[in-house]
Computed example of a mutant assay.
Amino acid sequence: MKDKYLRETRMVDFSNPAIQKLIQNMKWKEMGEFERIKAIYNYVRDDVLFGYNIDDGISASKVLANGYGQCNTKGTLFMALLRACNIPCRVHGFTIDK
């Protein structure tokens, strides 16, 4: 079951060269697991600006290229970075209608 949460998807496209370069530059794979998670979280929170992307379904690499995101798209980038660094994760979301 763990492997299911490490897979790459269309949105969680962590093999993208820009994502891989970021991971290498930040040296996240050299950190212990807890520090790695914390560093990735802080990066997405602090270094990716808040802003609305064109669509919630864009890929993590597009969020990174944009340099901004909102809760859903930042979540996609967060998942991609975690999975790329061998941290299994998933997001369970829903839509609220009036």
Score class of each variant (00 low, 15 high):
71 C>D: 10
29 K>Y: 05
16 N>G: 10
91 V>S: 01
49 L>Q: 13
6 L>P: 07
60 A>H: 09
20 Q>W: 04
75 G>S: 13
87 I>R: 03
8 E>G: 06
12 V>K: 03
75 G>D: 01
12 V>T: 08
85 C>D: 08
42 N>D: 12
12 V>H: 01
10 R>W: 07
92 H>V: 14
92 H>T: 14
72 N>R: 08
39 A>Q: 09
6 L>D: 10
6 L>E: 09
53 N>T: 15
6 L>V: 13
43 Y>K: 03
40 I>C: 04
45 R>W: 04
88 P>K: 08
61 S>Y: 04
19 I>G: 02
27 K>H: 14
31 M>G: 00
10 R>E: 10
33 E>M: 11
90 R>D: 09
30 E>C: 08
58 I>R: 04
68 Y>H: 12
8 E>W: 04
26 M>C: 06
98 K>F: 02
12 V>S: 00
12 V>D: 00
2 K>S: 15
76 T>G: 07
24 Q>C: 05
87 I>Y: 03
89 C>P: 01
24 Q>A: 12
44 V>E: 00
93 G>P: 05
89 C>A: 12
74 K>Q: 11
56 D>I: 11
97 D>A: 08
39 A>I: 03
72 N>Q: 11
59 S>R: 03
1 M>Q: 14
15 S>K: 13
45 R>S: 05
46 D>W: 03
17 P>C: 06
61 S>M: 01
66 N>C: 03
57 G>Y: 02
24 Q>S: 13
61 S>F: 04
68 Y>F: 14
86 N>H: 15
32 G>K: 13
39 A>S: 12
91 V>G: 02
45 R>N: 10
85 C>W: 00
14 F>A: 07
80 A>I: 09
22 L>P: 01
93 G>A: 07
50 F>C: 11
14 F>K: 02
81 L>V: 11
18 A>E: 13
13 D>T: 09
25 N>H: 11
4 K>F: 15
90 R>I: 12
17 P>D: 10
58 I>K: 04
27 K>Q: 14
40 I>H: 05
93 G>V: 05
54 I>D: 13
87 I>G: 07
4 K>A: 14
61 S>D: 04
13 D>R: 05
61 S>A: 12
